[in-house]
Write a protein that binds this DNA or RNA. Structure first.
Lengths: 337, 337
DNA sequence: TTTATATGCGGAAACGTTTGCGTAACAAAT
DNA sequence: ATTTGTTACGCAAACGTTTCCGCATATAAA
């Protein structure tokens, strides 16, 4: 079985290479009959166009990259689902890159994109990411980029987020109205805009309700489970412990529940809990967990939709695009009065 | 800023294109001094090699594809993590494809791979997948493929699985020893080898313990949550309802818990539950869930490791490779006597 | 002195496409 | 009869690499 490419098709049909190429692309310059002949032979011989050659020539890769910190979180898993579905609809392919919250990896990954490997990038920055030169450099090369969830404030481009401030405010408010007098916020970064938004919403709620706000109530967690658990235990066995906790990321829920369990503190009687979480199983927890559910799938979809819009329409400017998809507070047992 | 490629580097340095290329690849034919000059200029000018050109010429894409049914499951999320980590170590890139359990999509995706887009494929087949011509066709083109978790029996290649038969046997045994007299198995496919293994383990345990085995106890679930819930309710409000349930995939857990809750059946008193699940939050459920925890991350890692082994070493044969990584039964409240 | 051997580099083809430009044939308009 | 236009196609140049050759020069072996 010899190699089957555009050239061999052309020879077989006594046509030129260009005609075959155009026929396969359904060009208007080619007669219907010729098109039919070409397509027929192509399918018969099981012709599959070489993607590298066409990418090289056309400078379009038909690929987008998704750069995220981690995929172990159900938020990103659902987001990927959304992204992939849109990509498939548009005939695009999806590359996945995990930064593991490392700025250095993020830089290396973006740098590589300068070779034209991908036509566009969907990104949620790492917790470490402070500067943004690597992002700007990539965009300067003409590669469109849209942020979803975690965005960099230093870069002017589209960003799909959820209403972090508001949902955090609502969560805090909910805890206050449930009788909490001292509310702790578990954060995972002090630089991420998303974390700051959540923190701001929390603070604003405390302010509006004339609650004392102490810096000690804002706990910066790490990426080490054991360490976080220890943190939590320390926090909760303090005499001046909080009676309300907001976990600003899904995976911190486990620590809170475990710490409470080991200290024999009752949720929600001793301490009420609400968590930013997309866990399907939140309502099965003991007690069922009040969550701020983010529209992960939709965020993925709209981020992808937006990037394709800019890829199809070159003079569509991503700069001003700001899509905010609201989260939902699902009140369950962990926070009731 | 003019285009910066190998040619412009060569001109700038008064070297030939081939020399520059060789220098960048650290070829032995090039003097140390020349190499230094080239590399220095390359980094100074921020040169990034064009991946499409090199792939076209060298016929190596430095990409692998991961083809899975869904990513919403925490098993696949963790597996992706494992795969990506190994890929990054090897300088490879990871393409993600979701079949959404559709054979047709799976076929289209694999067909596309024939263009040389990827050097290798990691795959977990869809529940629909019966035949395997599309897989064989791809492998006939010389693209190595390794299965992880869900494999096709018709294809001779490496497969990374967990000990489905044994872990299912163990789970059943555990329920029997906890006093269950009638145990239902919730399956999601009657064709997937993995499902059949789990079913066989279950049946064998029943046999060994001289328990009656009824076809009605094996419930084939769908991909529709509502429908499954209804199924579950029907099953459990039957007068002859089971008092033990094994959920062979993670997402079925929710249905079971919800159905029990709505029927006011107590877990584990009225019905004991164990589930194949990788949910971090299993121990936080109400009651905490006994799980068969699959080594998802490790399975991803070894699958990836194996494919790279075959990519590096052309005469390494994947055919006979069978890696079985044991799952772990984590006994918790949902199944205690 | 001749013959090998290694070292360091350049020329040019090839990988499989896409695409700008040219052109033959024929019809319609002037 | 000439011009203009349309349709349908071919030629050949890119795209940026990798790699097979070839070819000097230098050193070592014969």
């Amino acid at each position: 079985m010899e190699k089957i490419n555009i050239k061999s098709l052309a020879e077989e049909l006594n046509l030129s290479i260009s005609t075959v190429s155009r026929a396969l692309h359904d060009s208007y310059e080619i007669s219907a009959e010729t098109k039919k002949r070409v397509v027929e032979l192509a399918t018969r011989l099981n012709y599959v166009p070489n993607h590298h050659a066409s990418s090289l020539r056309s400078k379009k890769s038909k690929m987008i990259a998704v750069v995220i910190p981690e995929v172990a979180d159900s938020f990103f898993a659902q987001a990927i689902n959304g992204i992939e579905s849109v990509a498939q609809e548009n005939g695009y392919h999806v590359l996945i890159y995990l930064t593991h919250e490392s700025l250095q990896k993020e830089q290396a990954i973006l740098k590589d994109f300068q070779c034209g490997r991908v036509d566009g990038v969907l990104m949620s920055i790492s917790a470490e990411t402070a500067g943004a030169v690597h992002i700007k450099e990539l965009m300067a090369k003409g590669i469109p980029l849209v942020f979803f969830d975690r965005a960099s404030d230093e870069v002017e481009t589209a960003r799909i987020t959820t209403d972090d401030f508001k949902s955090s405010y609502t969560a805090t408010q909910h805890l206050i109205e449930s009788g909490c007098k001292k509310i702790a916020l578990l954060s995972v970064s002090d630089s991420l805009s998303i974390s700051n938004e959540r923190m701001a919403g929390y603070k604003q709620a405390l302010l509006d309700y004339k609650m004392p706000s102490s810096p000690a109530d804002i706990v910066l967690c790490t990426h080490n489970e054991e360490q976080n658990l220890q943190h939590m235990v320390n926090l909760l066995q303090n005499s001046n412990r909080p009676n309300g906790i907001i976990a600003s990321v899904e995976k911190l829920t486990t620590c809170v529940y475990l710490a409470c369990h080991s200290l024999q503190l009752s949720i929600p009687n001793d301490v009420k809990v609400v968590s930013f979480s997309n866990l399907q199983s939140a309502l099965l927890l003991n007690p069922s967990l009040t969550t701020i559910t983010q529209p992960a799938f939709e965020m993925g979809r709209t981020a992808a939709t937006l990037i394709f819009k800019s890829l199809k329409n070159k003079n569509f400017n991503l700069k001003g695009e700001r899509v905010v998809i609201p989260s939902r507070l699902d009140i369950r047992s962990s926070s009731v009065a």
